[in-house]
């Protein structure tokens, strides 16, 4: 392959670049054509409202009475309603006023209307996915670091605990683990909490826990491999200077291991972001679940699923850029 591209002339290279774009264009066009064949109508303009939309708020009277006075300021108007022994005050934008002084109003009558921006369900889902992933990654790093260090310890209690943990997590599907966290551990914990008169934990806690422990097992293996890839002479040099094991780990081994484990860690974190899409099944409205809900109401599944995939791509791409930046920063000299 490499040799072929070396022999290629500039013209041929440009040609094949064009072929690439033709392929991309062809795939998109074919997709569009076939969807038209099944009478699918593309309505991309309907998508933005699920990120951000204008909500119409109607201000309604709560009491029966008569509009006593309207105090106008630059933008807002204060409506005072006088009822039978009770008064009500309502603020509405001055230009959307629906009543006049002296009007009789009944409970439920619209006094004024105003609009405000609201964050759409897709945006909420995206934010939740980001939040859940970041918290799980941070917890996963902590768990993985501890488990990884335990894994290389000579103490059998630590070592075997770490091995058991890693093997159990890596040997079973994440979906099953999420069910166990939510339906088994969650039920037990929430029942115990309820018995002691405390508030129950929301599903997101169990979702984060399942992801963090899942991620932690893989991080542990990455950390172990990273530490073991450092030549043992480094540890011996540090110890022979009088450093304790933790000091040698902290100042000599881990900083060197970190550089080697960053790339595999990045891969792990990218999988974690994608795996968070499973959390929808325990009623956490992350990006995938949010998309499903929007699809059922909007009936524009094609646009929305593509949008959903694109948003995951933005998250994972952003993360890998960030890790590349870290790699460059930790690179020696």
């Amino acid at each position: 392959m490499a040799r072929v591209s070396q022999q290629m002339t500039r013209g041929a290279y440009a040609l094949w670049v064009m072929v690439f774009f033709l392929i991309v264009f062809g795939v998109v066009a074919a997709l569009y054509y076939t969807t038209r064949k099944v009478d699918y109508v593309w309505r991309w303009y309907r998508v933005p409202q699920y990120f951000l939309y204008k909500e119409k708020v109607e201000v309604r009277a709560e009491i029966q009475g008569r509009v006593q006075e309207i105090l106008r300021s630059e933008e807002n108007a204060l409506i005072r309603v006088q009822g039978d022994g009770e008064t009500g005050q309502y603020t509405v934008p001055a230009k959307d006023l629906r009543v006049d002084v002296g009007d009789a109003v009944y409970p439920g009558d619209v006094l004024g209307v105003f609009q405000r921006w609201k964050v759409g369900i897709l945006m909420q889902g995206l934010w939740l996915t980001l939040k859940v992933s970041l918290i799980s990654i941070l917890l996963g790093i902590g768990i993985g670091l501890i488990a990884g260090l335990a894994r290389i310890s000579s103490n059998p209690a630590l070592k075997w605990s770490a091995v058991t943990y890693v093997e159990i997590i890596r040997g079973s599907p994440l979906l099953v683990q999420i069910f166990i966290w939510y339906f088994v551990l969650g039920t037990v914990i929430n029942t115990l909490l309820a018995k002691n008169g405390m508030e129950q934990l929301p599903p997101i806690w169990y979702g984060v826990a399942s992801l963090a422990f899942f991620c932690g097992a893989y991080v542990a293996e990455i950390v172990r491999a990273g530490i073991q890839s450092i030549h043992r002479g480094q540890m011996e040099a540090a110890r022979s200077l009088g450093m304790s094991y933790p000091q040698a780990m902290r100042h000599v081994i881990l900083p060197q291991a970190l550089r080697r484990i960053l790339p595999p860690l990045a891969g792990q974190f990218i999988s974690l972001i994608k795996d968070s899409s499973l959390l929808g099944i325990i009623a956490i409205r992350e990006l995938t679940k949010a998309t499903r809900e929007v699809v059922t109401t909007s009936l524009q599944p094609f646009e929305l699923w593509f949008m959903c995939a694109l948003l995951y791509l933005v998250l994972t791409f952003g993360l890998s850029m960030f890790v590349q930046y870290l790699e460059r920063r930790t690179a020696v000299s």
Partner: peptide
């Protein structure tokens, strides 16, 4: 160990 300096064949600098 802090009182006993050691120099290795392979240097083992950090």
């Amino acid at each position: 160990r802090a009182e006993v300096g050691m120099v290795f064949q392979s240097f083992n600098l950090f």
